[in-house]
Simulated scan of single mutants.
Amino acid sequence: MITGIEVPIYLKYNFTAGAAPARFLSQLKNGVLTGQRRAAPDAQVYVPPRGSCPATGLPTEEEVNVADKATVQSFTIVHIPIPGNAIEPPFVVANLVADGANISFIHLMSECDNAEVRIGQRVQAVWKPEEEWDYSMDNIKYFKPIEEPDVPVDEIGKLPVTGLEV
């Protein structure tokens, strides 16, 4: 009886972005992080935008620029190598809330002692050289810790950013 076999499988696919993700990726090519929110005073800013509010299903039609500084909301230290990934473990993958946004996105952290990464820690994007930018979140190589006070857990996602709205 055969209980298992190893078969290498390669899957090649193309992703077609909708209007909101396409605008987000176009702005990334210009070195700008954006989010979207509903046109309501208490609406949350979603990064990356998907075109609708996940809580209500209503369209998120207002585009908002957010900072490339963020706060660590949660993180994982990866100890298992990922096949085909050039990054050697251990490394940190974090859920980050960009200043001006309310919802986190996932990105790599570096230039840090993994044991010192913590919830509430302030970080900033390290961008690739501009001539290498394309339509990808990979324009940001990683986020690194910065010398700013930690954000209390109950304040993460509530940092205002002024002067960045589109």
Rank of each mutant, 00 (worst) to 15 (best):
M1W: 02
T3E: 14
E6C: 15
F15Q: 14
F15C: 11
F15I: 09
T16M: 14
A20M: 02
S26H: 15
L28Y: 06
Q36R: 00
A39Y: 05
D42Q: 09
A43D: 13
Y46D: 02
V47I: 08
P48C: 02
P49W: 00
G51I: 08
S52H: 14
G57L: 09
G57R: 09
L58P: 07
P59G: 10
T60W: 01
T60G: 00
E61K: 04
E62G: 01
E63P: 03
N65D: 11
N65F: 12
A67L: 09
K69A: 13
A70N: 04
A70S: 14
S74M: 07
I77A: 04
I77N: 00
V78Y: 05
P81E: 12
I82Q: 09
P83S: 13
N85P: 03
N85M: 05
A86D: 02
I87N: 00
P90R: 13
F91P: 01
V92H: 03
A94N: 06
L96F: 02
G100M: 12
A101T: 05
A101E: 01
I103L: 11
S104G: 15
H107F: 08
H107W: 07
M109R: 05
C112Q: 14
D113A: 11
V117Y: 00
G120F: 00
Q121V: 01
Q124Y: 12
A125C: 15
A125F: 09
V126D: 11
W127R: 06
P129V: 07
S136Q: 08
I140S: 13
Y142E: 11
F143H: 09
P145Q: 08
E147D: 13
P149C: 08
V151L: 00
I156C: 03
G157S: 06
P160L: 10
G163D: 14
